[in-house]
Amino acid sequence: METKSGSFFRFEKIYRQFDTNRYLEESAEVEAGSILIVTGPSGSGKSTLLKILARLMKPDSGEVYWHDKNWLAYSPVQWRSEIQFVSQKPIIFPGSIKENLMLPFSLKNNKGKKVNTELILYYMDKTGLPSQMLSQEAKTLSGGEAARVALIRALITEPDILLLDEPTAFLDNETRIITLETIDEWVKEQNRAAIIVSHQEEDLKHLNYQEILHCPIRKAV
């Protein structure tokens, strides 16, 4: 089954039809310690591609390999906690910011993951969220604050791969840059990688990406 050995994460001919006559069909690879940027016009299925890679949606066909093992060899639950998708619209749950950050650790599949308070404080400080905010009700957050909380929530569970859908969509210029730098720094450590959907060229300046995958709008005839 393996066509190529030694690749960290790759997807081959991920095909899916959507919106009646459009479809996406993409292949790419990302090495450990690097970032793959996915660009393209809106409606090209970039978000759908990320959800497929996270196994939140099924492709019509195509395969994904992680550590050269087919994705179906992993349980979907384990896959999703190690290859974590963060949606463009930050999803916040009832309760405080702290409760929001702790939520993933309450799951059976994440029992082995330990809450690292220092790491939480580090990322909050780095992305411009004061630590006093931890006890604040999450629903009072602005869009930009919520986006950073959602990103930190993913970072602290220490997945292997982050799938980020427009991580800077809700951010102002200043927090945008520090957030991108945070992601960039996160990827460099250990065996990690990120696939980031972005159509802001500005973003690319702040990321040490390996490759750009351009998704055109494909229409079925």
């Binding site: 939140l56 999703r80 974590q84 749950f93 059976k108």
Partner: peptide
């Protein structure tokens, strides 16, 4: 539906 999908993205089972 967004919350349910986000929970799945954390590695939750459908029940969780």
């Amino acid at each position: 539906i967004d919350q349910v999908e986000q929970m799945l993205a954390f590695g939750a089972t459908p029940w969780e």
